[in-house]
Write a protein that binds this DNA or RNA. Structure first.
Lengths: 166, 166
DNA sequence: GCATAGACGTTGAAACTTCAACTACATCTC
DNA sequence: GAGATGTAGTTGAAGTTTCAACGTCTATGC
């Protein structure tokens, strides 16, 4: 990638790329809006609740949330603070590491997740899954998996940095 | 979608969906960061410049920018203001409609776009296009196109609203 | 022609994210 | 076992996006 001539995209590739950008923007915006309107929850908050719900004791360390969401630590601090104020999450000291903080989903958080999940899943189906054949959808999944793997591998910064001075 | 039983995703679908979320997040974050580091330009600003560069007179009405980017009008106002302050864009009164404002790319904006485009295209290739076979990439493009069409059709709000009281 | 409604864009405040310190604790090294 | 370095999380300010209200102009209906 260091030649002086850039290898531009074909017009077909360009169309596909733009469809990706606009489609994924529209899709996440729509899912976010549906969740907000129905349950007052952003897509990001919803995803935090999902991760907590899948963890033992419905509890996760702050850093694990940050890593799995690809968010900076400080973003997670702020988001969890808001969710704590809303009563969806409680913070506790982590066992075994006195620096650590654990976020635990409250019953109220669980109840909200139970309500919100159908909204979200129906949205994902209606706006995405059902628009593709099974094979198409699987192809997309494989490709995006490769993208994620590639970027995690290529970009050491993603392991953790994001918030530390580079 | 109104039955009381939710039709959950299969675990394979769930994996594909999560790959999509994480992959697209990582991808846009990476492209954004590469552009910022190399040229001090965000991905959104870059895309505005691209759209201007493709328009007659390198000029576009504010509302056209907003619509094509799926951004709210006020977001475009703020972004264009920053880009104007940076000397990349100039605002002029629109002809024929005294309410209107046109954003015109300056020479400085053009020069920056010329510099930035290879960075962006190389990133898109390296992190996305080259990871897929042509057929795979085309499949993805077709799917995302369907998603965009569906959401634009289903959601009248996207035509314009976004900033107006709903 | 006047009133009402609609469209264009801006404004300022609130909400959210990023960025650069910073505190506290853990680990590593000698 | 003391100092250096690294990790966990927070903080507050700066930057960006959203939200609601507004001012201006255009189009519509009467």
């Amino acid at each position: 990638m260091s030649a002086s001539e850039t290898h531009w995209l074909s017009s077909e590739q360009q169309r596909a790329w733009r469809a990706f950008i606009i489609g994924s923007t529209l899709l996440t915006d729509t899912l976010d809006r549906e969740l907000r309107q129905a349950h007052g929850l952003s897509l990001g908050e919803y995803e935090i609740l999902v991760r907590l719900s899948e963890s033992p004791d419905r509890t996760l360390r702050m850093a694990q949330i940050a890593e799995s969401m690809q968010h900076s630590r400080s973003r997670v601090t702020h988001t969890v603070s808001r969710m704590e104020k809303a009563g969806l999450i409680a913070r506790c000291a982590a066992e075994g590491d006195r620096r650590g903080v654990e976020a635990r989903m409250t019953d109220k958080g669980w109840d909200l997740l139970v309500q919100a999940a159908p909204t979200h899943v129906n949205g994902v189906r209606e706006h995405f899954v059902d628009l593709a054949g099974d094979a198409e959808f699987a192809t997309m999944g494989k490709l995006m998996n490769a993208v994620a793997d590639h970027l995690l591998a290529v970009n050491p910064a993603f392991e953790d940095i994001r918030d530390t001075a580079e």
